[in-house]
């Protein structure tokens, strides 16, 4: 059974100028010990869908889903109290800005121990031991001393390690890492990614990595879910995705990577991600897609089978060529 199962999740935000759909019918499945990446540009709804799962969205958001199950429990009907018991214990999350995700008024040790205090019945000295163990596990040197430190006394990389230690405190079954390395330098990024994947293997937890960086995806995960404008457009094994993307958006995105460029002029995706006011009626990618035809503009596509990466496309690509066009014509 899947650890996390989300079916047809939608999130709407009430804004001054009307409803804005940030997540549009997204499915996510995470098995135990899974290593999944959710990739997308800004506005693809990749963070919002996970925040919805955690129940961390502001009151302007309306969340609907056909299924929202974690470890056999239905998160849609669960009470706020019961949700709090799960969130922070079995599911935890780390964020992009390590500096602002730690409370500057308390020591690192206090913050790690707080979550132990909330979710376990350890004694004071047990908590101290566990905190030291966690700090060691995430590779912070001199853990006893660093537990006394305040967040501003740590560098960005160290803060992110402390955040990870805090997230791991209650041995979560699922860790969601929302752009964990975007604010860090590449050499530190390499350290943190290595740490995360190492911990994932060591503890057997599932790891969902939210990122926009194709390089990080290629080097880190097993399965990749690509999102565009709030929809899931493709889901594939990492090897297949980079070799043979089935959705035109994935293909175009990969082609736009400078390191894959074969000539000086980079291939581009024309236009911009649709916003609140210019959402196309049919396929959301159709205004920017080089394969789009009348059907794409008029009709919403439905996902293809698993052999085609569940591509949300009328004419999923195989080896860069659209398929199924003849039958439609």
């Amino acid at each position: 059974m899947a650890l996390l199962e989300i079916r047809n999740l939608s999130v709407d935000f009430a804004t001054h100028s009307g409803q804005f759909r940030a997540v549009d019918g997204v499915d996510v499945t995470v098995d135990e010990g899974d290593l999944l990446a959710i990739v997308g540009e800004s506005g693809s709804g990749k963070s919002v869908s996970m925040l919805a799962l955690m129940g961390l969205l502001p009151w302007t958001a309306t969340v609907t889903a056909d299924k929202l199950e974690f470890d056999g429990q239905d998160l849609r009907t669960i009470s706020a109290r019961a949700r709090r018991r799960i969130v922070g214990k079995d599911i935890s999350m780390i964020f992009q800005e390590p500096m602002s995700s730690l409370n500057p008024a308390f020591t690192i040790g206090w913050q790690i121990k707080e979550s132990l205090r909330k979710h376990t019945d350890m004694t004071r000295s047990q908590r101290q031991d566990r905190a030291v163990e966690l700090m060691r596990q995430v590779g912070i040197p001199a853990p006893e001393k660093r537990l006394q430190a305040y967040p501003h006394q740590l560098s960005g990389g160290m803060s992110q390690r402390a955040m990870i230690a805090m997230a791991l405190a209650n041995k979560p079954k699922l860790l969601i890492a929302d752009e964990p390395t975007t604010a860090l330098d590449v050499t530190i990024q390499a350290q943190i990614l290595e740490l995360l994947t190492g911990l994932q293997q060591e503890t057997g937890m599932a790891l969902v990595l939210i990122t926009h960086d194709m390089g990080v995806v290629a080097e880190t995960v097993q399965r990749v879910q690509v999102q565009y404008a709030g929809q899931r457009v493709e889901l594939q094994e990492v090897g297949g995705l980079f070799q043979n993307p089935h959705h035109p958006y994935t293909a175009a995105l990969l082609a736009a990577l400078p390191e894959r460029a074969t000539e000086k002029r980079l291939p581009t995706i024309p236009g911009v991600v649709p916003g609140q006011f210019d959402r196309p009626a049919g396929c959301l990618f159709s205004p920017r897609c080089s394969f789009a035809d009348a059907r794409c503009i008029a009709q919403r596509p439905s996902p293809a089978g698993p052999e085609l990466g569940r591509a949300l496309c009328h004419y999923p690509l195989i080896d860069g060529q659209p398929t199924g066009k003849e039958s439609a014509a």
């Binding site: 350290q191 390089g215 995806v217 290629a218």
Partner: peptide, 25 residues
């Protein structure tokens, strides 16, 4: 060399052993 090695390459076939830099700036 460490900087180059730490930069992720967008090709899962090329996963490689990185040069790990200890510590920070």
């Amino acid at each position: 060399k460490a900087l180059l090695s730490a930069t992720p390459v967008a090709d899962p076939a090329l996963r490689k052993e990185r040069i790990k830099l200890e510590g920070e700036l």
